[in-house]
Design a protein around this nucleic acid. Structure first.
Lengths: 339, 339
DNA sequence: TTTAATCGCTTAAACGTTTTCTTTGATTCA
DNA sequence: TGAATCAAAGAAAACGTTTAAGCGATTAAA
């Protein structure tokens, strides 16, 4: 009644385990007759190969690790950030198509990624987001293929899949300017050197300068990438005496929080404040009004990452690649035309 | 330069692999002196046990499968449903605390759950949502511990973690009634016999009858559990000549979509229509107006499921349990008081 | 003083695969 | 007819663990 093994199949088909193994994998010619008997036995015994044993012998695991940031240390529900959820879903889907499974890995005091990679024999790793320098140093030690998503780490050990963040917020800011806004605030998450947020700030600055609008540091608000932070930044803005009419948010989540913040402060979007987001997460189109935002093809990111990773796993000599995915402004109802 | 194995450690410590194994696991007494030497060797060689090999020997895997529904066949991004994302996140967190990892498993033409369970040697499975009867029949064959979340399957092979769905929508509907609404529509996902949606409809009916408000089938709208369906149902409602003032939605996602639908149709919430949701997904509180809804402790669901599953894995004789988690109405701004 | 129990470790088998050699029997060629 | 070739399948080692069984030496019990 216990589950059938190769040995059982072999016995039933009247051959040895080697023959069965080869019959299945096709790595060596097996006579039609034998192959038929083997397949029959497999059917009858409902045999499913044990991936664990296979891994031990082949020293791979058909498992890829995915590192996602925890927005706050100790935050339990990392899937809550819709952007990460969507990327994760996409990675899971494409990995599964190729016979791989994903192992989600959050930072944890009692276990490093390295340890995980070793003990589970990961075939590769996809890292979403940006981390401190020593993280990348550590990660190299795993000696396995790694693809970074949304990172500006330029260590050429790693593959990279990302967007042009500066260009994205340039698009957003330009759109605001084109709609007649001149006093435009910028809502961002934590700005680390060479990080995504910093790049997005850069695009904001570029657009302003292109339109000869002076850049004012008091228009820049820094928080975290979550809904509540959006609310807080909106409150700060309303409490100030700045004559801001438009807000460029460095993430949809921030924009959505801000809309809520404005609403609670008795202000309406887009009548009192115009706002534009970044990412185009699924919920953006269902807000009222719809959130105007810069769309990145989130699921494409996952797909590309998986493709690149698997290609590298097959061919370890693959040169390191960087792929920059397209962006596109999608206009909905959250920006008011002033001119 | 390749990774260190038990053998390497043993050699370095001048003992055999068995000794090292026992020194690590503590399943046999080992002299202090030897233990010290072993630990030293482990440090020096940066040894991490291979979970694969361990699994093969111990016939477990420290892996638990999680089955999530795909909202539509062919839909790629199953994480997009925020409710599932939150449950998943919670499961992942608590599983990891106990040294387990989760393997996400979506229905797939070329691979059944059974096959997956066998080939990856899963220690247990958590199933989120409701499935056709034969799914549960099949699942039993795995012979491993299984916990169902949000299922009304009463096969006592399975543990169950759920809420009282009927009571939840009863709470919601009663709240509408208490606020003076009499013409109340019900927006639901697909209603399968003995399914969650059917139960929620039941609660709606109960509340109506308790307030002596007649139940009218034309007030019941059936769609899918996604944002777009919410929009469509709202359109249908607006196109009808019913004098509905309030909507009880069987899921937050549906409610959010409906708000969008109303908005596009020139109607406002809560001025033209009041609406109440179900679940209290994270985004609900950040809508404008905030979505009044029935809160279930989503992350608690994941936690309880993991706890129960692991307990069962440890003690296979554990009697089957059913746990019903509490619900609570949270009032925000989407319901207007009429009386 | 003999016997039995205890301690600390080693030996070796087992888990379920894959894969390198070998072996076997049939076929071909000179 | 004998050697050489070839296809198909078998035997056995290996992957990195765990663990039952065993084995000397010391210590306790009789």
């Amino acid at each position: 009644m216990a589950r059938a093994t190769l040995k059982d199949v072999a016995q039933r088909a009247g051959v040895t385990t080697a023959t069965v193994s080869y019959a299945i994998s096709g790595k060596r010619p097996i006579s039609e007759e034998t192959k038929r008997r083997v397949m029959e036995a497999i059917q009858e015994l409902d045999y499913v190969p044990d991936l664990n044993a296979r891994s031990l012998s082949m020293r791979d695991s058909k498992l890829i690790g995915v590192v996602v940031p925890q927005t706050e240390p100790g935050d339990r529900l990392m899937f809550q950030n819709s952007f990460y959820s969507e990327v994760l879903g996409s990675i899971e889907y494409y990995a599964r198509q190729q016979g791989y499974h994903i192992l989600i890995s959050a930072t944890d005091a009692n276990e490093s990624y390295l340890t995980l990679a070793k003990k589970r024999n990961l075939d590769g790793i996809i890292v979403i987001g940006m981390y401190p320098d020593d993280f990348y140093q550590q990660m190299k030690k795993t000696q396995i293929p790694i693809v970074l998503i949304d990172s500006y780490c330029n260590d050429h050990y790693y593959h990279n899949i990302r967007i042009d963040d500066a260009y994205g917020s340039y698009l957003a800011t330009r759109y605001m300017l084109e709609n007649g806004h001149e006093h435009i605030a910028f809502f961002a998450g934590q700005m680390k050197e060479n990080g995504v947020m910093k790049k997005r700030l850069l695009g904001y600055q570029q657009a302003l300068s292109e339109f000869n609008v002076p850049y004012r540091t008091q228009y820049v608000y820094e928080g975290q990438i979550d809904y509540n932070s959006g609310i807080q930044l909106a409150n700060q803005l309303m409490a100030s005496d700045l004559s801001v009419t438009g807000v460029v948010a460095a993430a949809d989540i921030l924009a959505i929080g801000a809309i809520k913040g404005f609403y609670e402060g008795g202000k309406r979007v887009p009548d009192d404040y115009s706002i534009i987001g970044f990412d185009d997460v699924e919920i953006a189109q269902f807000m009222t009004p719809g959130l105007t935002t810069v769309r990145q093809q989130i699921s494409l990111k996952g797909q590309k990452a998986v493709e690149l990773l698997l290609k590298h796993i097959e061919d370890p000599s693959l040169p390191k690649q960087e792929e920059i995915l397209p962006l596109q402004l999608v206009a909905r109802g959250s920006v008011k035309k002033l001119n």
